[in-house]
Design a binder for these strands. Structure first.
Lengths: 155, 155
DNA sequence: GCGGGATAGATGAGCTGTCAACGATCTCGT
DNA sequence: ACGAGATCGTTGACAGCTCATCTATCCCGC
């Protein structure tokens, strides 16, 4: 008994489909806008934002990776590319010979400071303004619920 | 007057952050599971699903692209890769010398039929079961709202 | 002080997505 | 019947992501 059905109910499938479509469209448009406006990828933006907001412009590599919930390999490649373009720099870590500090360069600060207002404007225009404050709140609650549910689940 | 503020309110930012975090975590986990379970990428799955469900296993290239809302270049690369792995094939189109039909091969059918139940199970486990039917419904409504709002907006 | 396991991070291969440019065919007005 | 545009789809260059593997350092018990 009590076998979980093989497929979703029509309501469940409809909810899943529209969530997926919404999320893809939204992320896609924001990513493209960011690139057009600021010649930056979403990854660049996230890293610089986390580094400057939460880290004061200077963070240990793995702390940075954890702060955005990325695998270290992804962050390593990303930092490598950003370093090549002069957005961040690596500094040796005196306390730990294996470790590095990742530092936002002046060019990195300039980049995020120029990009952020436009990016926020697009988020507002495409997402926030689509919803009432109550809906926004509901969505936040639902997202939290899914997140905590996932944390309790194995992979 | 009435200038839109430079940043989001704390409530708006909280909603945006938890939505983004949820969506990334969820999609990431589903993608990894799909790959582990079925050696298929999310793109493979989407293409095969659309092709077999909506197209009866055979669709014009651009119809296929539109059905999943992808750019043609993305679909072209994807179809190329899938053809190389034997999941789909291209067939000439008698009516239009420029065009092609994309066809799901027997291997393609087998792949999607084996992958789908597990994938649905993960969607259920990670997403559907996190929420009450009412919440699921609310999320669907909110997603729809954002989608139609975006359609009315320029890029 | 040294040997084993854990930790910090880099690296390379292979797949995916984007953008811009391209070639081929179709359509339609004249 | 022919030339201009539109449409169908491909291609190449390049950035991004994942997975597995690797090196260097650190920590800790003996």
């Amino acid at each position: 008994m009590n076998a979980t059905p093989r497929w979703l109910t029509p309501e469940q499938k409809a909810a899943w489909d529209s969530f997926i479509r919404m999320q893809e469209t939204l992320i896609g448009r924001l990513t493209r806008q960011l690139h057009v406006d600021s010649r930056m990828s979403a990854s660049d933006f996230i890293v610089l934002a986390s580094l400057t907001e939460r880290g004061g412009g200077r963070m240990r590599f793995l702390d940075l990776a954890k702060s955005v919930e990325w695998e270290k390999s992804r962050m390593s490649h990303q930092v490598g590319r950003m370093a090549k373009r002069g957005l961040v720099a690596r500094e040796e870590c005196p306390d730990d010979g294996r470790g590095w500090f990742i530092v936002a360069t002046p060019a990195g600060y300039r980049a995020i400071e120029e990009a952020a207002p436009m990016h926020v404007a697009h988020v507002r225009r495409l997402f926030v303004e689509a919803l009432s404050p109550e809906e926004l709140d509901t969505l936040a609650r639902i997202s939290q619920r899914v997140l905590t549910h996932m944390e309790q689940q194995p992979d």
